[in-house]
């Protein structure tokens, strides 16, 4: 398959780094060259962007906020209010750093693929699955933190004779969360990237990708929002009492 031109990979190859052009062979679990594969390098780019960008725009934090600080304060407090609505003030304060990181990371990672020469790290299933597994583990850690060992009652249903029926159903629905959360994000973003690539090849000179670029902005925002919203719902479900 023809590869798109990804400028970080081009630069790294010019520097003599071993940039892999395919996933490792089946059954190989550790391949250190994969750290130079596009989804990794573009993840590092997004991380660097997210660290440097607020530093540049915000300046010093003051009592009376300036332009940049006002912008970030509006975003952050809006996000915290949104979380507090869904999982209570306490839970929102506790989980805010993680969820806000997910929100910003996924948003920027989705959007970066709209520029030629860049690639969305989230169009690779490994990245979205990693995010999802973090959310999944945190859900159950929160459950044990809030309920102690009684957390297992979440999986058993209301009456004892329903246990053999409810327990497998609950476990299956928890597993389905992993799949649906990761594959939704991956599928949407991969579809956007592939569609853009094909339209660029077919009729790039006639602005054919333009409508899909507009839709891409919309999809990027919606998918980042959906990921965070679903994480909030899962967290709050594991924090509340068993039904």
């Amino acid at each position: 398959m023809e590869h798109p031109i990804l400028f970080i990979s081009v630069i790294l190859e010019a520097l003599g780094m071993p940039v892999p052009h395919a996933a490792p062979a089946f059954g190989v679990f550790w391949d250190s060259h994969q750290i130079f594969s596009p989804h990794m390098t573009y993840t590092f780019l997004v991380i660097a962007f997210l660290i440097i960008m607020p530093k540049l725009t915000m300046g010093k934090i003051e009592m009376i906020p300036g332009k940049g600080q006002n912008f970030w304060e509006a975003i952050i407090s809006g996000m915290e209010g949104f979380m507090a609505e869904n999982m209570g003030k306490e839970g929102a304060r506790m989980m805010f750093p993680m969820l806000a990181t997910f929100a910003f990371y996924i948003l920027v990672a989705n959007m970066i693929g709209l520029m030629p020469g860049f690639m969305s790290p989230t169009s690779n299933l490994n990245i979205t699955l990693a995010c999802t597994l973090i959310v999944f583990c945190t859900t159950h850690i929160l459950g044990f933190k809030f309920h102690g060992l009684n957390y297992y009652k979440h999986f058993l249903g209301p009456v004892w004779w329903l246990i053999p029926l409810i327990a497998p159903i609950e476990i299956i629905s928890h597993m389905a969360r992993i799949l649906s959360l990761s594959i939704r994000l991956f599928g949407n973003i991969m579809a956007k990237e592939t569609l853009l690539g094909i339209l660029f090849i077919l009729a790039g000179a006639y602005f054919a990708p333009l409508p899909i670029l507009c839709l891409g902005v919309f999809v990027s925002i919606v998918q980042a929002l959906v990921f965070v919203l679903l994480s909030i719902l899962y967290f709050s479900a594991s924090m509340e009492h068993a039904h």
Partner: peptide, 23 residues
């Protein structure tokens, strides 16, 4: 709200899929 309801289809498919796969 759209976010919540967009999960219905996927979750339904994956639940059945995981059940069959495990069996």
């Amino acid at each position: 709200m759209m976010a919540d309801f967009s999960t219905i289809g996927l979750t339904m498919a994956f639940s059945i899929f995981i059940g069959v796969g495990f069996g």
